[in-house]
Simulated scan of single mutants.
Amino acid sequence: MTATTHFIRCSLVIIGAIIAAIAIEWFLLPNSIIDGGIIGISLILNTLTQINFGLLVFLLNLPFLYVGYKHLGGQFFLFSLIGIVALAATEAVLHHWHLAPLTSTPLLATIFGGLLLGLGVGLVIRNGGALDGTEILSLLITKKLPFTVGECVLVFNIFVFAWAAFVLGIENAMYSILTYYVAAKAIDAVVEGLDSTKAVMIVSKKYEQLTKAITDDLGKGVTRLKGQGGYDGEEKDVLYVVVRRMEIMRLKKTIYTYDKNAFFTIINAHESRGSTFTRKEEH
């Protein structure tokens, strides 16, 4: 990593942490709404003890940062540490100013607070860091037990939101669950990109015409795979193509134009890279 790239990533991590702090201080905390994970636990403890939220996030994340350093490397540790320190410092400054919350309507705080929090956390994750140690813990658990990272985080957050129901009340706990959902979707959008891609597999006897049409009309590379019917044992040609979400309807129209009986499946592709995705090139 060059010095310029390193500086840009550090800057984006800091910006992400600042955005997350704004979401927490101006939307969530004033309305007694929390998020999941370490941030959620810190918000609950802040309500119970009045200990500074930023300090709680920093202290509770320290053990996870150490584990991350051991298992994910020094670069992850550095970016995470920068993000967590920036989050704690920004939250302390915002709290010191005692500015009025931007809204006192719980639903608005939930939606916009969740969106901002997801945007901030997503920027940090996209640039190689983390603001919450639960994902690190989950990575270690999945090596020992037959669970996914998402399942481990979900189980952990069930206990967090159950605790929130006792401390903040049932209604605030429900708003908190909604905040967690909104933030998670926003994180996915930032990390994976808004312009998501789709992988399409097409089974058709008119594969040659379809290959030419997809390449010429959509400008997409097409990979032809060899398949075999499970019932009749007949050999089949399977076309594999990756398109952007906005191009799905054009692809469907192209398929139906050449073969109304074609079978195809559309699968979410989290990331697509390579020359065949961006320029005309037939395999």
Rank of each mutant, 00 (worst) to 15 (best):
T211I: 06
E235F: 13
V200C: 05
H283W: 11
I170N: 02
R245P: 03
L62V: 15
I41S: 03
F264A: 05
K185L: 15
R244I: 00
I267W: 07
Q50W: 14
A109L: 05
L131R: 06
H270T: 13
N261I: 00
Q50K: 13
A100L: 08
G230Y: 09
L65I: 12
L94H: 02
N157A: 06
G36A: 06
G122R: 09
A165Q: 07
K220M: 05
E25A: 11
L178D: 03
I266Q: 01
F53M: 04
S272I: 13
D35S: 11
A186M: 14
T223W: 04
D216R: 10
L55C: 05
R126Q: 11
V242M: 04
D216A: 13
E151K: 09
F166C: 13
T215C: 12
R126C: 00
A21Q: 00
F7K: 12
A173E: 01
F264R: 01
T197D: 06
K212Q: 14
T90I: 07
L43Y: 03
S80G: 07
Y240M: 14
G73F: 00
K198A: 10
A184D: 10
G129W: 07
L65W: 04
G169A: 03
V190Q: 07
I14W: 01
R245C: 07
K205D: 12
A186G: 05
F264C: 05
I141Q: 03
N61T: 08
Y69D: 07
C152F: 01
A130S: 14
I38F: 02
V160C: 05
S196G: 02
K260M: 10
